[in-house]
Amino acid sequence: MREILTVALLLIGTMFMLVGAIGILRMPDLLSRMQATTKSMTLGAVGLLLAVAVHFDQVGVTFRTVLVIAFYFLTAPIAAHMIGRAAYFTGVPLWSGTLFDELSGKYDPSAHTLDSFEPVSSDDSSAAADTPETP
């Protein structure tokens, strides 16, 4: 029973990883390639690590694999967001079939901030009073 579950989890994880690897080769655009990486690869790694946890059936191993899975779920979106933002703001070419670009006029190209962003600043008070006001 445990062996069948291990085999199933191994195959599921590997299929997700293969899909992610094919995706990064065939996708036309950087931002599309990032979808293959973050979504598909994370699920593939989760599947393989769950297979390890089921196979060994010890408390220490299960704890470590759950730790890695939780870490992936926390950090993969952060990494994808940072790379996507850096690539978009430095002008990576979008795919020619892109229908419309939602951010195209709405950001400040030198400061890399959106137009709706208002920094918390004291308008005409002295330098001693520098506690920021939360809106």
Binding site: T6, L30, A36, A45, A51, V52, F56, V68
Partner: peptide, 24 residues
């Protein structure tokens, strides 16, 4: 350059998968 960064991130995730399979 961001293409290569994404590929390296993916490579590291796949190596974690290889480590898991090897430990089994």
């Amino acid at each position: 350059l961001p293409d290569r960064v994404v590929a390296l991130d993916q490579f590291a995730t796949m190596v974690v998968g290889v480590i898991a399979v090897y430990s089994i």
